[in-house]
């Protein structure tokens, strides 16, 4: 072996060491550094999320959710709607009746058009028709109160009929046929990933939440009379 060949072999040996030993270690170091960066970012995001969650008052959010559920429910608000309307009518000294129920325009669109896309947020409505009877001023007051009564209702149609009391001919009763739409929206099905950031409420959201307080809620009517046959052997 000549000196030149020896030299070449030595250089080659060094180069091999460089490739075989150092390169994989360097690649792994690079990967580990990238993982470290990712973990750091992830930890920061999680810490921020945890701090936000720990900063939320559990009692306050619980109350807000309950209020929201009463005003803008997650399921069809049939019972609460009937209870509110009948009690509001009674409060204003009006007769209440002639109840009719329809699925509502949003729900109809969903069921009619198979090709139509369902509302992404799941928002649906329920149309409710009823009659109230009394004098015009009280009916007007009823309509004003309806604005701030839970669940959230929107007056769709109003009709007025004048009826004369058959006993006292001079007294006239105004019967209003009112159609209202009540809205409901199911809650989100999943929370999403743990690392998904918490959506903070904006100032306008806070203002909306403050608006919830102004809504009047009536307790759902529970029948007090016993239903079914009495026990004859007692």
């Amino acid at each position: 072996m000549t000196k030149k060949q020896k030299l070449i072999l030595q250089i080659l040996g060094l180069f091999l060491i460089l490739v075989v030993l150092i390169r994989p270690v360097a690649v792994k170091l690079n990967d580990n550094l990238a993982t470290r960066r990712k973990l750091n970012t992830s930890l920061n995001q999680l810490q921020t999320k945890l701090n936000i969650l720990e900063g939320i008052d559990p009692i306050m959010i619980d109350e807000r959710v309950k209020k929201m559920e009463a005003i803008f429910p997650s399921t069809k608000p049939i019972v609460s709607l009937m209870a509110s309307l009948s009690q509001l009518a009674a409060e204003n000294g009006l007769s209440f009746g002639g109840v009719s129920l329809t699925p509502g325009s949003l729900s109809q669109e969903e069921s009619q058009g198979k090709g139509k896309k369902k509302d992404a947020s799941g928002l649906a409505d329920l149309t409710f028709g009823f009659q109230i009877g009394g004098d015009l001023d009280r009916i007007s007051q009823f309509m004003q109160d309806l604005e701030n009564t839970a669940p959230l209702m929107k007056i769709e149609e109003v009709g007025l009929t004048i009826k004369t009391n058959p006993i006292f001919n001079l007294e006239t009763i105004v019967v209003a046929d009112i159609k209202v739409s009540a809205y409901y929206q199911p809650p989100p099905k999943t929370l999403g990933g743990v690392d998904k950031p918490v959506k903070l409420l904006s100032k306008s959201d806070e203002a909306l939440l403050n608006q919830l307080v102004s809504f009047k809620t009536f307790p759902p009517v529970i029948p007090l009379t016993t239903v079914g046959k009495e026990n004859l052997f007692e």
């Binding site: 969650l53 929107k154 809650p187």
Partner: peptide, 28 residues
């Protein structure tokens, strides 16, 4: 997770509620 669910519930519902309340006030 309970608080997170409630927060998500509120933020989701407030989007629809905000839009509804606008038309609701006008309707009234």
């Amino acid at each position: 997770s309970k608080i997170e669910t409630q927060q998500l519930y509120l933020s989701t519902k407030l989007v629809s509620f905000g839009n509804l309340i606008k038309t609701h006030e006008l309707h009234q």
